[in-house]
């Protein structure tokens, strides 16, 4: 049997909407599953990447853990793909970039409605927040960008089939036209 293309996926500062959109491939998932297999992904529960062909990442880089995960993907994936608006631009979470971090945390943990024993969380287990939410390509080298919020199932289908067939991926106009 032919070796399957190995794909890892994760969400950093994202909402999993891009993952849901991937699942919108519906019945096309079945032929796709003939060609690919999943490595680290919310779909498999594998905790760390091993050698993969493709890494799909949704969400921007919000905290130090995101940096570590992103680096793990970069190190283990031959092709790294920024999936969706947040991964490409920072997206909605990046709206906090215009507010000082101190104010953001105070609003949530000190002044928020119903907060008791108000304090900024400082457990060693918690990743620290970056000053600004960053798109993936400002932290590691990214090979491809799939635009959309989320990218449609058609985008995933076209992109993955192109890559699997060894073609330079190219998205038709309808796939990247939003109004």
């Amino acid at each position: 049997m032919k070796t399957k293309i190995r794909i890892a996926t994760t969400s950093l500062g994202g909402c999993f909407g891009c993952h849901m959109s991937l699942l919108d491939l519906d019945e096309r998932l079945i032929p796709l599953a003939e060609l690919i297999e999943f490595d680290r992904s919310p779909l498999t529960d594998i905790e760390h990447c091993t050698n993969c062909d493709i890494g799909l990442i949704e969400g921007g880089v919000c905290n130090s853990e995101n940096v570590h995960v992103l680096r793990e993907f970069r190190k283990n994936c031959k092709i790294l793909v920024a999936v969706g608006a947040c991964a490409i631009t920072g997206g909605l979470p990046a709206m906090r970039n215009f507010i000082p971090l101190e104010e953001c945390l105070a609003e949530s943990y000190l002044r928020g409605i119903g907060v008791e024993n108000a304090q900024i969380p400082n457990d060693l287990e918690l990743p620290l927040l970056l000053d600004k939410v960053r798109p993936l390509h400002e932290v590691v080298k990214v090979d491809y960008f799939l635009p959309g919020c989320p990218p449609s199932a058609e985008v995933f289908w076209t992109f993955l089939n192109d890559l699997i067939a060894g073609r330079e991926p190219s998205l038709p106009y309808e796939c990247v036209h939003y109004d």
Binding site: L101, L128, L130, D131, E138
Partner: peptide, 28 residues
Amino acid sequence: SYEPGFDLDASLENARQLANRNDAAAHL
């Protein structure tokens, strides 16, 4: 192959101050 165009560790400085942390995991 690649390096960020900004100082990653410095961008954690505010969060370190606010959480009063300086352990290894609080740095990049």
